[in-house]
């Protein structure tokens, strides 16, 4: 997802100066990990393409063309997210002798997921709890829950992988003990 369309959406929502847009983008789409410079370059592109224009006090507003462009994006079908992960490949290609290291790697990824949930939680602690019975609160909760659903699903998958690898490792140990005893 480009910062350009996100910035355009925020400008349509409320004409704002660049520094307010950076703060809003961080708050509303923290998972996308945009940096402040993305907002400035997005504004420059949007202005060049005639989708926003500068107003007084360095504030930006959307042009009619900008609103049309945003609506076209909003109503178009969303593409499927890519599913490429280095860990998938490592698991696909690892061998039984790699088990202890793989278990460690998978557990490390579990902690990363938990850390991301924690970061999201902390970013929400800095604002008033959203009220999902109001439109703005509901939208905020839905976007947050989408990110949580991703981490929850990944965490669940990682835990399943780790448990399977641990059980497999225990099985190997039992087998080699039986061999030694025989």
């Amino acid at each position: 997802m480009s910062a350009k369309i996100a910035v355009l959406g925020l400008v349509i929502e409320e004409p704002s100066p660049a520094h307010r847009l950076t703060a809003k983008l961080r708050q509303r789409l923290s998972s996308a990990e945009f940096v402040d410079s993305n907002v400035y370059s997005a504004l420059a592109r949007l202005e060049r393409e005639g989708l926003v224009r500068a107003r007084e006090e360095s504030s930006y507003e959307a042009t009619e063309e900008g609103v049309r462009h945003f609506e076209q994006w909003l109503f178009a079908s969303s593409s499927a997210p890519p599913l490429r992960d280095e860990l998938h490949m490592k698991i696909a290609l690892c061998q039984p002798q790699n088990l202890p290291r793989m278990i460690e790697l998978v557990y490390g990824q579990e902690l990363v997921c938990l850390g991301r949930v924690q970061e999201l939680k902390k970013s929400f602690e800095r604002i008033r709890p959203p009220d999902p019975s109001r439109w703005s609160g509901l939208v905020m909760v839905m976007v947050r829950d989408a990110e949580l659903a991703f981490w929850e699903s990944r965490l669940g998958w990682l835990q399943g992988v780790r448990e399977s690898l641990e059980n497999m490792g225990a099985g190997f140990q039992d087998a080699s003990r039986r061999q030694r005893e025989a």
């Binding site: 938990l114 949930v117 924690q118 929400f124 947050r144 659903a149 965490l155 780790r162 448990e163 641990e166």
Partner: peptide, 20 residues
């Protein structure tokens, strides 16, 4: 469900007997 942890002061996850 993960969204239910959002109001907690502290979170943990339990799996395979391990609390993380």
């Amino acid at each position: 469900d993960m969204p239910a942890v959002m109001r907690a002061h502290h979170i943990a996850s339990l799996s395979g007997g391990r609390l993380s």
